[in-house]
Design a protein around this nucleic acid. Structure first.
Lengths: 321, 321
DNA sequence: CATAGATGTGTAATCGATTAACTAAGTCCT
DNA sequence: AGGACTTAGTTAATCGATTACACATCTATG
């Protein structure tokens, strides 16, 4: 910056003003400075700027698992929305580990992100408190924690889940296997509670960890127990469960009814296409980004609940008639 | 930091020394400082530190499309490798747009990342030159650009593609539809060149943009032209093409042989499972991160070429006998 | 017992920007 | 002509760390 100033025959203050579009500099000075910048290929140091202004124009996003397309899609939506407001997003991948999540959150805070979006790995409020204590704007996404005091953006699958339950029961299923998420995540617990609740005593629950491998194992257990219907509570566990179903040579929907919470583009390609509960991922991401930006600007956004929808495609068999 | 120093009754220099594990401070001072840090909940400002040391312990990763699971997997591998070396990764999503890619690269440079991993959206070397001119360590990943002067890490699919071609030709296919990537990307061009080359004159090529929608359109065109085999050059276009095949009620492999470049966990679940050319994504990501770290440390890593493998699963029909 | 060497801390310059406070020059009015 | 007011630009403090250098204290040595 000093070089630029010298080159243009002005002080660094003037260069800074040109850069930040202040009113002061005359058109001629402005032109001279811009020419110098161009000539020297100067690019301002964002670190120095942020240090001085205490604003990084950056949002932190800590997601549970980058390999889960659900979160990838959310990440993309967040990023789009943030960019359109002049913000940049730094993504941290917690890999469903509370420890790695904490590490990332701290790293992002150390780098002074202007705000943080978090999909908490567990419902322990410790980390959330830590962030709040630091006074950094925080919005929870997809999952919440116990006694959360910050805005939360998530999907509401209750209606879809009860509708699903009604159909399964109506079709005469009496042993319904539920491949649930971890009980220490809000989504894991809530989805399962709603579904088992509306299934009366017909549900058998096995908990997985929102990943493929745990889905196959859970499916194996449930099938061994004589389940005639399987519901996986996220797309990766659904993938694993489908693998197990295939490996056993079972036919959907003839031998087993099948449904997954969370749609993916390849579900319609299976034979039969898989019935799912579709979440409005893009809207969730955008809403979360908007809430966070509002918080940063000092407003107090409300919680957002977007409804997930049951999409019937044929994998439930007669339950869809 | 000043507060901590005051609290512990030492100077900021000493606090800094304790923080950075210097030899100097006596155990007692160290304990006192650590206590003060703990008590005040102090966290060092990474911006200030980086400004002073000119090192951010951060790698930039600009990928072509975050929604493409291929890149998501790469991103994760890069991140894993980087973390194990004490580096953090900032991901930028170019969405297959050269313009957005350039914006991201500049943002990352402005933030003074220690090095940059780039999956170039086009093979125009302009942006690469710009980065090199700035003296920032750069490694290209998956794709290269014309006259690249920096290390490149990519998969080599030639062998797998010629093997695939041999099988298709051997099975008597004479109209083979190739759903190619954009001709201005190195992967788009090279894969297509190798395949069409070894297919003699039997190939019909339609270019897509590495995304789902373009895959269906290309498949439609090729099927209209009487193709009896389809090869999609990336998983998203494969997804689109499969949709089109299904929509037309065609049976794989009876009516049409089908293969995709790039494996995905759900391909084995289709009926029949889809034959693919599998890329060593995780290894690519790790190798790229390692190369970049080497570059940062002043060494000169070699280019890396990892071989992709043909995985036969049944969607080629008699060509797999 | 002076003196060289080692050791632990403090002082202050520095990284590269922003911006409050100031100065110099020009404009306008009586 | 001289004072009040604008306007364009400069000087220097500041953000929060690191680190070269200086300094004080303590030990070992001839």
């Amino acid at each position: 910056m000093k070089d630029v100033a010298q080159h243009a025959g002005v002080s660094t203050a003037t260069v800074s003003r040109v850069l930040n579009g202040h009113a002061a500099p005359t058109p001629e000075t402005r032109v001279r400075v811009l020419a110098a910048i161009e000539e020297l290929g100067y690019r301002p140091n964002a670190l120095a700027r942020s240090l001085r202004t205490t604003s990084t124009q950056t949002l932190g996003l800590v997601i549970s698992d980058l390999l889960n397309p659900f979160f990838a899609e959310i990440a993309r939506a967040v990023e789009d929305e943030a960019r359109s407001h002049g913000y940049c997003v730094v993504i941290g991948n917690a890999d469903e580990s509370a420890e790695q999540e904490a590490t990332y959150v701290r790293t992002l805070l150390d780098r002074r992100v202007d705000g943080l979006l978090l999909c908490p790995a567990t419902d322990d409020p410790g980390l959330v408190r830590e962030v709040s204590a630091g006074g950094v704007p925080l919005v929870l996404l997809d999952r919440t924690v116990k006694g959360a005091t910050c805005p939360v953006v998530r999907a509401d699958g209750s209606e879809a889940l009860t509708a699903l339950a009604r159909r399964l029961v109506g079709a005469g299923h009496t042993r319904i296997g539920v491949i649930a998420g971890p009980p220490n995540t809000s989504t894991g617990r809530e989805r399962t509670d709603v579904l088992t609740g509306s299934l009366g005593g017909l549900a058998q629950v096995v908990h997985g960890d929102f990943r493929q491998e745990s889905g196959s194992q859970a499916a194996a257990r449930l099938l061994d127990n004589g389940a005639t219907a399987l519901v996986a509570m996220d797309n990766l566990m659904g993938l694993g469960a489908l693998g197990e179903v295939r490996a056993r040579g079972l036919q959907i929907p003839h031998d087993i009814a099948f449904a997954v919470f969370d749609d993916q583009p390849w579900f319609p390609l299976l034979d039969p296409p898989i019935t799912v509960i579709a979440q409005p991922t893009v809207e969730m991401g955008k809403a979360a980004a908007r809430s966070l930006l509002a918080l940063i600007e000092g407003r107090q956004p409300d919680d957002v609940r977007l409804t997930a929808k049951l999409v019937l495609r044929g994998s439930l068999g007669e339950a869809e008639l």
